[in-house]
Design a protein around this nucleic acid. Sequence first.
DNA 1: ACAGGATCCTGGGGGC
DNA 2: TGCCCCCAGGATCCTG
Length: 273
Amino acid sequence: MPELPEVETVVREIRPALVGRRIRAVAASGHALRRPWSAAWHAPLTGRRVREVYRRGKWIVVGLDDKAALVLHLGMTGQLTVAAASDPAADHTHLTFALDDGRHLRFRDVRRFGGATLYPGPDELERFFAESKLGPEPFDLDAAYLHGRLAATGRCLKAVLLDQRVVAGVGNIYADESLFEARLSPTQPGRDTGLRSAARLRRAVVKVLRRAIDRRGSSIRDYVGGNGQPGGFQNEFRVYGRTGEPCRCCRTPIARVRLAGRSTHYCPVCQAV
DNA sequence: ACAGGATCCTGGGGGC
DNA sequence: TGCCCCCAGGATCCTG
């Protein structure tokens, strides 16, 4: 589900509720998550105060006062919300962090592709991000860098945008929307992309992501922000999920193909190779 | 090294 | 109503 705009929205909305709060207790559902949660982390988390909350790509980092860091990923259906303890927890709530103000930070994930890990210190956190080889944030993306990465591969543009090592945070929705915005074909081989097209793609990614953040992300099925409310960018999709519907620009039916194992939506006329 | 496919899960929707 | 198939905002492991 959640790509950069959704994760950014969650972080912005949980941050004011978390920073400065102390964790009083931790509880886990016991269901196996894709990133295994360890009950051994409950003790070191208990009593810690939240120092900061930030996003890197699609990862959420909750920094604690002892320099440990709780790192969460929402996978496809993950939700991270802060709610009153009296507010009943929905099914599939896997982690509950009771705070010192009576509220709960809850991680809910129907498909359990997400999860959380506790890194005991900054070195371990740094090593985790280094080993993941996460690319730059889209807002720091440089056209020459992107052009270089594209020139080095025969993979199609869609596959390159989904590669978190090239640029961090873009997922299936925003890859399709960005390629439409840039008027580039998702099937075009990376190495056929000139510097001007790479620069156009960079601008498109930034524009689409910023607009999606303004709308608090896209809610199709499961996604909600940190306050439990859905986003609104799904009402502004140009191609994603619009298979067979007329292109908003030229009325040609939006096509759907499978690329890099993912459904890919594009206008065959506006985005001709 | 690289690229593509399978895999981990649950649930919703469509066709019959 | 039920069953079966396909589909889903992702990362990672395995194969050729």
